[in-house]
């Protein structure tokens, strides 16, 4: 369990950092934020990075700490790229 948690933390940190590096804002700029469709480094990038790391570790059965961190970094980078292009997969609904 500890390896997956540390891997998830690495995934969240890697996804947040990568998201900032590729130009996503640190937090939603539109107000009120609770209704904003904009994505940022703070939401939902770390959620996808951490959850994706746990999923990959479970599927591969990797329970060693170093492997989990490696998975976390790889999934984190992929998560940031996914979030930057999320509207190609989940387009925002038409107003009205």
């Amino acid at each position: 369990m500890m390896a997956e948690l540390v891997g998830a933390a690495a995934g969240a940190a890697a996804s947040f950092t990568t998201a900032l590096a590729i130009g996503l804002p640190p937090i939603q700029r539109e107000k009120p934020r609770r209704r904003s469709w904009e994505v940022s480094a703070a939401f939902p990038t770390p959620v996808i990075g951490a959850g994706g790391t746990v999923a990959v570790c479970r599927v591969l059965g990797w329970k060693e700490l170093r492997l989990a961190v490696l998975v976390g970094v790889a999934v984190g980078v992929a998560s940031a790229a996914f979030v930057a292009n999320i509207e190609r997969v989940f387009p925002r609904p038409e107003p009205g």
């Binding site: 369990m1 997956e4 209704r35 469709w37 959620v47 951490a50 959850g51 746990v54 999923a55």
Partner: peptide, 24 residues
């Protein structure tokens, strides 16, 4: 899953489910 990592996986599933339902 026997720990908080199960909750993190669930949060990812919920987020994807939200986006499928036109919810931010």
């Amino acid at each position: 899953l026997g720990g908080p990592h199960g909750g993190l996986l669930a949060a990812l599933a919920v987020y994807l489910g939200n986006r499928l339902c036109a919810d931010p």
